[in-house]
Computed example of a mutant assay.
Amino acid sequence: MNAAAGIGLVAAIVVIIVAATSIRVVFQFQRGVLFRLGRVVAVREPGLNFIIPVIDQMKKVSMRIITMPIQSQGIITRDNVSVDISAVAYFRVVDARKSVVAIENVHAAIDQIAQTTLRKVVGQHTLDQALAETDAINADIRQILDTTTLEWGVEVTLVELKDIQLPDSMKRAMARQAEAEREKRAKIIAAEGESLAAAALGEASDTMMAHPLALQLRNLQTLVELGVDKNTTVVFPAPLMSAISDISGFFARESAAASAQAPQTPSNGSAAVLDGPAVLASGTTR
């Protein structure tokens, strides 16, 4: 009786051990690659799965997107500038069977090929292109990686250049270039302003020539602006002084013309002075 109970206890323990070793739980973000006597027989979906102990083995593969930093690489660009560039790659397994069977360590393989591809692609561009056309470089790196990694059951979803380190001498040269570019823009803007100001002054001078009093009004406005600060010095612009002399000459000429046109009293039968043909006392006209 005791022997039967012992055998039953041993059998129960064996069953428990077998059940424990035959149960496999695959999480939602995983797939289970099932090997039976060394051969791949199936890819198990998430949930509770049973295997044959000793005969079957299950390799769990994560299907989530993995972030992999690409360490800084010393690269010589096409215009012979040495730069250090680091990047980051995002990839995920799309075929669990290939990722286990086709390559031994998919993470290490992608890390190595990403480094070499980064050096190759950036080396085909100049420094200005590497700084300005990062989107195109990222797309080229991703395309090259996808061509290789799809055979391993892995898809590269995104590649981004993270940091670009330039030599100090190149930084100073780029700073001088940027300063010269700013100075060029400043000079061009100043020249355009002078051109517009000259055109506006030309139109103003044409208007003043057509209306002489406009210049006098402008001179008076200038005197008013000078008087705002309670300045005791009075400035008379040269055009105003010439205008005063012109006005004085005008009055002098008018006075002389008025004196010349005044009628004179005839004496000794002489003819009167008139604005027209001389009329003699006899009435005849010469």
Rank of each mutant, 00 (worst) to 15 (best):
G153R: 11
G153Y: 15
V156G: 05
T157A: 10
L158I: 05
V159Y: 04
E160Q: 15
K162L: 13
D163W: 11
I164D: 13
L166E: 13
L166I: 08
P167W: 07
M170I: 12
M170C: 03
K171E: 12
R172M: 09
A173S: 12
A175S: 10
A178H: 07
A178V: 05
E179D: 14
E181P: 01
A186V: 01
A190I: 01
A190T: 03
G193R: 12
G193M: 08
G193L: 12
E194S: 04
E194M: 03
E194T: 01
S195F: 15
S195C: 00
L196Q: 14
L196M: 00
A198F: 14
A200L: 02
A200R: 00
G202V: 06
A204W: 02
M209Q: 05
M209V: 02
M209T: 09
A210D: 10
H211F: 03
P212A: 02
P212W: 02
L213C: 02
L215R: 12
L215E: 00
Q216L: 11
Q216S: 13
Q221D: 09
Q221E: 03
T222R: 03
L223F: 05
V224Y: 10
G227E: 08
V228L: 08
D229C: 11
V234N: 04
V235Q: 13
A238D: 12
A238F: 08
A238L: 09
P239D: 02
A243V: 03
A243K: 08
